[in-house]
Design a protein around this nucleic acid. Sequence first.
DNA 1: AATAGATATTACTTGTTAGTATATGACAAT
DNA 2: ATTGTCATATACTAACAAGTAATATCTATT
Lengths: 211, 211
Amino acid sequence: MAQTPSPFRTAEQRSRDRQAKKLALMEAAVRMFNTRGFHASSLDDVAASLGVTKPTVYHYLGNKENVLLECLRFGLKQLLDAATHARAQTGVAAERLRSFLIVYTQVNMSDFGRCVIRTPDEALSEESREVLRGLKRQIHAEMRSLIAEGQADGSIACEDANLLAFTLAGALNWPARWYDESRGHPPEETARRLVDNLAAGFLPRSRPSNP
Amino acid sequence: MAQTPSPFRTAEQRSRDRQAKKLALMEAAVRMFNTRGFHASSLDDVAASLGVTKPTVYHYLGNKENVLLECLRFGLKQLLDAATHARAQTGVAAERLRSFLIVYTQVNMSDFGRCVIRTPDEALSEESREVLRGLKRQIHAEMRSLIAEGQADGSIACEDANLLAFTLAGALNWPARWYDESRGHPPEETARRLVDNLAAGFLPRSRPSNP
DNA sequence: AATAGATATTACTTGTTAGTATATGACAAT
DNA sequence: ATTGTCATATACTAACAAGTAATATCTATT
């Protein structure tokens, strides 16, 4: 089985290499976008941060807007996956919503999620904007529908599912701006506490809601 | 009293004129920043939108960064004013907090408030960033201290006043991104409903919290 | 009138960066 | 061996936008 390893890479290995390089470029880019903003980030600098030159970036990612677009898609996919994962769970809707929200928040605290939140639509061309709006709408719809299920099964109390979705999303997107992993509590714990605030509200409850 | 009006303006009138022009430039700028983003907005275009030229902008506002800075200060002042106004009211802390939050949200739905929320720190120089961080911290501190008062007088239930302030701020900053005055409910109503969501939480309450 | 100050313009310089044309070396398949 | 393809570099173009003279004009006071 364990033969002398060939110094030649198979087609599959090369394809994996390529993917890894592409992802490394995306990671370098997203970090720079997050620290400097999209317009203030030059592809020269992104490339240099990995010890290569700009045409290499173009080789793997086409053009600057596409670099951003792929980063955003990647982040949005993580958010959507969180939704489908929560959807597959058992329990009342409020519980499924909670577990979705906690993962949603953690994604927003990570590099690609941060980029999704921090990048305003205007940074993109009309075309790409439509694509992204579609994905964002999907995520919003998932959240809203979990809320609606909760209204139906009685585990969630609210007047307007759509507006509640905006309320929750806002509160849980914001860590993309303020959360600093290197100080304070770890991401999961912070995420959980934020969601608890939203679940309970800030007005005192006379008695526990689960009799 | 009502004499033939002099065609000559007094010093005071001229000073008011100057202020008005400066403000008009700031409004034009802030609207462009909000629609295109800071880096994608050229002062040539800002000036052109009022039928003047770029050096005019420099005459009134110095340089591009200062244009942004003045807009942000303006918006932040509105937020701080909302806090001091709420502070002066009577009633339990939860009530004062509510009324602060509602105004806070409405500011974030208006041009200058939008700009405060949508402009990420990185757009500015280290210097200006410090100034703004200071102002933002003030607002955050106001919110946190209203919450702490509520913990003390029993009108607010929460474990961590600081984290609750982030939760509320996030939810109520977000309308700067999604709210569209031209569709849906008017600003005050939307603001009130958002705050209600946060006050009540999404878990059902067995009975009203005000016995 | 004449001068000073405020307001605005035209025309320029300069720096930055997205994007491209072209060259080159390495490897793989034939 | 030869040919083609992938990965990368060097070196360039083109465009845009910030900021700066130098200058003209209007207004108000002496």
